[in-house]
Lab assay of single mutants.
Amino acid sequence: MPSETPQAEVGPTGCPHRSGPHSAKGSLEKGSPEDKEAKEPLWIRPDAPSRCTWQLGRPASESPHHHTAPAKSPKILPDILKKIGDTPMVRINKIGKKFGLKCELLAKCEFFNAGGSVKDRISLRMIEDAERDGTLKPGDTIIEPTSGNTGIGLALAAAVRGYRCIIVMPEKMSSEKVDVLRALGAEIVRTPTNARFDSPESHVGVAWRLKNEIPNSHILDQYRNASNPLAHYDTTADEILQQCDGKLDMLVASVGTGGTITGIARKLKEKCPGCRIIGVDPEGSILAEPEELNQTEQTTYEVEGIGYDFIPTVLDRTVVDKWFKSNDEEAFTFARMLIAQEGLLCGGSAGSTVAVAVKAAQELQEGQRCVVILPDSVRNYMTKFLSDRWMLQKGFLKEEDLTEKKPWWWHLRVQELGLSAPLTVLPTITCGHTIEILREKGFDQAPVVDEAGVILGMVTLGNMLSSLLAGKVQPSDQVGKVIYKQFKQIRLTDTLGRLSHILEMDHFALVV
């Protein structure tokens, strides 16, 4: 994948999101292997301009796509893939009243899908469409860049269908997702969380590099694949309309690839034109409109599966009536509230959605109805927002919020430890010299600072030695090549209790 991002070429006709291997024109390309080798690009942008032909009021008969309808489940399912879809609609009884809503608040519980998330729908649909058009064949390999849930859905379907599955996901995604993927037989590649989507090191860039190296491999490409919004247009939206008897006044959905909100909203605009569509985008993402909503100094966020630093091709923002931004604290607070007060075992993005819903639905009156999409299960986040310690460490809970008995030293300040200034190293000294210094002084790690004293990161003896043994660096290389740029900081005025929580999850903390 090139470091400079080429513009994806656009073909003359058809839909841009065809499933299957992508040609340089962004659509299915038939021909000899030699032709494909000559024409197939190194990668295709996940934010390529959409060429979708959908228009409100256009006859369904003019759609270029294969459409399906929700099917009634048999008493005995032939395999677990038949437990994807037909998820329950559940009334939220307490939270709406707590925040003064007059309307009825309903939750579409997508964590009841077989793999635990709304992404099971698009995973199965992308595979079925690729099999139907002859792209996927027995023994082929599926590769997908994902925040985890699409990966789980694909790995689940691949396990049943017999495909090899490789999932490329950023490091910030939970260990629970990784464990589930491994249990399903998927191979996992992790990428830096802070890598831009168009960087060769991003999950998108690495996935395309693997595709170019592995024979008979395919990126189904949830960011561009029409099967993504079509899955929701054909099934999720129809289920909502049936469950609500066609009567709903507002739908609120958090947005990642945009397939969920695009597919549902398009069908609702056709069948229930008075329904307002509300999009939820986390602070630090750029999906919301108008652009002024996205202006923030924050560039990272903890909530998973929603928000991006690019506009995915499948996201149709014209069908969203209003956007709201959400933050991590309210997302996790509301997710825990949904679990504790409503018994809905949902993930953090569901918290984002409901946090926005109780604001947006203030305009609705008694007798009206708001539906929220709860995308995934708490299963993926047992060591994250479900953990009091994690919430404390991230600053989303305060010590006084917890009532468990603490040891005698818990409320003492870090400054009472009488710490001395640490050994520091410059980023320009060599790895070999740094190892000598650390061994001589008896230290395992040291902060790396520039000549102005600005902290650049941390270097550890173990990481340097393993990097040297693996051949990633040489003793003569500058130590700046092996620094940890993500590390926890703590102030002298913070409590030892807070430091204790940090050290339970990290090997060190830097006192500043």
Results as ranks from 00 to 15, higher is better:
residue 87 T to A: 13
residue 94 K to W: 10
residue 128 E to W: 08
residue 211 K to N: 12
residue 197 F to S: 13
residue 243 Q to Y: 14
residue 105 L to I: 13
residue 186 A to F: 02
residue 208 W to L: 05
residue 140 D to P: 02
residue 94 K to D: 02
residue 196 R to P: 10
residue 146 T to I: 02
residue 79 D to P: 02
residue 220 L to V: 02
residue 70 P to R: 15
residue 89 M to S: 02
residue 259 G to I: 06
residue 176 E to I: 02
residue 173 M to G: 05
residue 173 M to T: 09
residue 99 F to G: 14
residue 183 A to G: 14
residue 184 L to K: 02
residue 58 R to V: 02
residue 243 Q to W: 05
residue 246 G to V: 09
residue 197 F to I: 08
residue 93 N to Y: 06
residue 175 S to Y: 11
residue 36 K to T: 08
residue 244 C to W: 04
residue 232 H to F: 02
residue 11 G to K: 08
residue 166 I to N: 08
residue 46 P to N: 04
residue 204 V to K: 11
residue 162 G to V: 02
residue 192 P to G: 02
residue 146 T to S: 02
residue 218 H to E: 07
residue 22 H to L: 09
residue 271 K to H: 14
residue 61 S to N: 02
residue 3 S to C: 10
residue 246 G to D: 13
residue 248 L to R: 02
residue 196 R to I: 09
residue 205 G to F: 14
residue 53 T to M: 11
residue 124 L to R: 06
residue 193 T to N: 11
residue 87 T to C: 02
residue 254 S to T: 07
residue 158 A to F: 02
residue 222 Q to M: 05
residue 129 D to R: 05
residue 229 P to F: 02
residue 63 S to A: 10
residue 160 V to C: 15
residue 233 Y to F: 10
residue 60 A to T: 10
residue 144 E to K: 13
residue 71 A to W: 02
residue 74 P to Y: 05
residue 56 L to W: 09
residue 87 T to S: 07
residue 99 F to E: 11
residue 238 D to C: 09
residue 2 P to A: 13
residue 35 D to S: 08
residue 151 G to M: 02
residue 240 I to W: 05
residue 249 D to A: 15
residue 261 I to A: 09
residue 15 C to L: 10
residue 70 P to F: 05
residue 234 D to A: 09
residue 216 N to W: 02
residue 35 D to G: 11
residue 32 S to P: 12
residue 109 C to H: 04
residue 248 L to I: 10
residue 264 I to R: 05
residue 64 P to F: 11
residue 101 L to A: 10
residue 273 P to R: 08
residue 129 D to F: 04
residue 22 H to S: 04
residue 120 D to S: 07
residue 247 K to D: 02
residue 230 L to C: 13
residue 97 K to C: 05
residue 4 E to T: 05
residue 6 P to N: 09
residue 142 I to Y: 02
residue 238 D to K: 08
residue 242 Q to C: 12
residue 5 T to D: 02
residue 199 S to C: 10
residue 195 A to S: 05
residue 219 I to W: 02
residue 187 E to Y: 08
residue 274 G to P: 02
residue 148 G to I: 02
residue 101 L to R: 02
residue 22 H to C: 12
residue 76 I to L: 13
residue 66 H to A: 06
residue 146 T to D: 02
residue 16 P to D: 08
residue 52 C to V: 04
residue 75 K to Y: 07
residue 204 V to C: 10
residue 125 R to W: 10
residue 229 P to S: 13
residue 122 I to L: 02
residue 166 I to R: 11
residue 145 P to N: 02
residue 59 P to A: 06
residue 90 V to C: 15
residue 73 S to H: 14
residue 163 Y to E: 05
residue 225 N to Y: 02
residue 45 R to Q: 09
residue 65 H to G: 02
residue 93 N to F: 02
residue 39 K to C: 06
residue 66 H to S: 09
residue 207 A to T: 08
residue 258 G to Y: 13
residue 214 I to G: 05
residue 44 I to G: 02
residue 12 P to H: 15
residue 205 G to R: 10
residue 131 E to L: 05
residue 4 E to H: 15
residue 38 A to S: 15
residue 186 A to N: 08
residue 203 H to V: 02
residue 174 S to T: 05
residue 69 A to L: 05
residue 20 G to L: 11
residue 158 A to R: 04
residue 139 G to S: 09
residue 144 E to M: 02
residue 34 E to Y: 15
residue 217 S to L: 02
residue 22 H to E: 13
residue 51 R to V: 02
residue 111 F to W: 07
